[in-house]
Design a protein around this nucleic acid. Structure first.
Length: 214
DNA sequence: ATCTCGATAGTCT
DNA sequence: GACTATCGAGATC
């Protein structure tokens, strides 16, 4: 996706990112996930890291659009965002869940889900429901997908428009009527804003069963 | 299916 | 010193 894609209204970008592909290039091949859930964070939003101005931590949010804002939280998790809107605005879209498409084994290894006794990831014998359960265990949450893709603070600020290392690509186009808008998760401020977006009926979200419409 | 709680460290007041 | 854009285990319904 080109820089102009990200340089738009943050709410629009958050919805346009549904169905797009998150790709990380590694020596063993690409890791690929299809975006299933996003959240918008804007300038006028008390829940946004940038709301109270620029600091060392959130500096990337104030830079040019199309870069990765990756931060560490709760003492053990990372969250991956794409910076949006014009430089200086401090807006971004949090990627909350992806459907793992390519690289299941490496993702499972990074998530610590491959050892004996921890439920195997042999997909050949897995039912559809089991496949979904395992996919959600890999990438069904912002912290999980960062761990699965090996995203951490060393990648904060990465340009997402180069088509190498770490980037986003067009995938399914999701029509407006297939997009659900719900309250954002894990925040205490501005919970009245319906800025969490999912594809209607998509099972690969951080929580199942959200069917409310825009 | 839904809840409560603890882990754990960086950031900001 | 309080708070956190989370996760997983264990309890409970």
């Amino acid at each position: 996706l080109p820089r102009d894609f990200f340089r738009q209204n943050t709410l629009s970008v958050a919805q346009a990112l549904l169905g797009c592909l998150l790709i990380r290039d590694e020596p063993d091949g690409c890791l690929i996930g299809r975006i299933a859930e996003t959240e918008a964070y804007t300038q006028v939003d008390p829940a946004c890291h940038a709301f109270r101005g620029q600091t060392a931590r959130n500096a990337t949010m104030f830079g040019p659009p199309g870069h990765a804002y990756i931060y560490f939280t709760y003492g053990m998790h990372h969250c991956f965002n794409a910076v949006t809107a014009e430089a200086g605005q401090g807006e971004a879209v949090l990627i909350r869940a992806v459907e793992p498409l390519t690289g299941w084994e490496r993702m499972a290894a990074r998530r610590g889900l491959t050892e004996a006794g921890k439920r195997g990831f042999d997909l050949k014998t897995a039912s559809e429901a089991e496949r979904i359960r395992r996919a959600r265990a890999l990438c069904g949450g912002p912290g999980k997908l960062c761990q699965a893709f090996g995203l951490d603070r060393t990648l904060n600020g990465t340009d997402l428009t180069t088509g190498s290392h770490l980037w986003l690509a067009a995938g399914d186009t999701v029509p407006p009527e297939a997009i659900c808008a719900t309250p954002r998760i894990g925040i205490t401020l501005a919970t009245d804003r319906l800025w969490r977006f999912t594809r209607r009926g998509d099972p690969f979200t951080s929580r199942p069963g959200d069917t409310r419409q825009t």
